[in-house]
Simulated assay, not measured.
Amino acid sequence: MPLILPLLLAVVLFCVGVYGVLARRNAITMLMSFELMLNAVNLNLVAFDAWHLDGLATGQTMAVFVITIAAAEIGLGLAIILLLFRGHGHVDADSARDLVEAPAVEEAR
């Protein structure tokens, strides 16, 4: 199989992920878009590893590390989203920016 086919699929996946991050404000959709982008990176790693044929399987090894990091990221992200939903009843990313505490202002005496 030519190398261009998995690379084109990876480009499409990555572009869909970027669109999902930039256009959507729902935190769950943003997490899914991050996962799409990481899957596109994994596809590139495995495709280049199969194309290079060095026998070390470095691309596949790096893909396993990316999958591990993605699993940790999704676990932490879902925990934050659940806390946001329990506390405020929404998972809107724009509204979550407003939750930052304002700096304390000393009262003039």
Rank of each mutant, 00 (worst) to 15 (best):
L76H: 06
V91K: 03
T68C: 13
A96E: 04
G75R: 12
L82M: 12
G89V: 03
L76V: 15
F85Y: 13
A72L: 14
A71G: 09
R86F: 05
L83N: 13
A63E: 01
G77M: 07
G89C: 02
L82I: 13
G89N: 03
V64Y: 01
E73I: 13
I74W: 02
R86Y: 04
Q60N: 15
A71Y: 05
D94F: 03
G59N: 06
Q60G: 15
F85W: 10
I69R: 09
G87I: 07
G89W: 00
F65T: 10
E73L: 14
G59E: 01
R86M: 07
G87C: 03
D92G: 02
T68Q: 09
L78R: 11
M62Y: 06
V66F: 04
D94W: 02
I69M: 13
A70N: 07
I67A: 15
V91W: 01
D94E: 08
L78P: 00
I74V: 13
T68Y: 07
D94Q: 09
T68V: 15
A79G: 12
G87H: 04
G75T: 14
I74E: 02
R86Q: 07
F65S: 09
D92N: 04
V64Q: 01
D92E: 01
S95H: 11
I67M: 15
H88Y: 10
E73M: 14
A71L: 14
R97T: 12
L84A: 04
V64N: 01
I81T: 03
D94K: 09
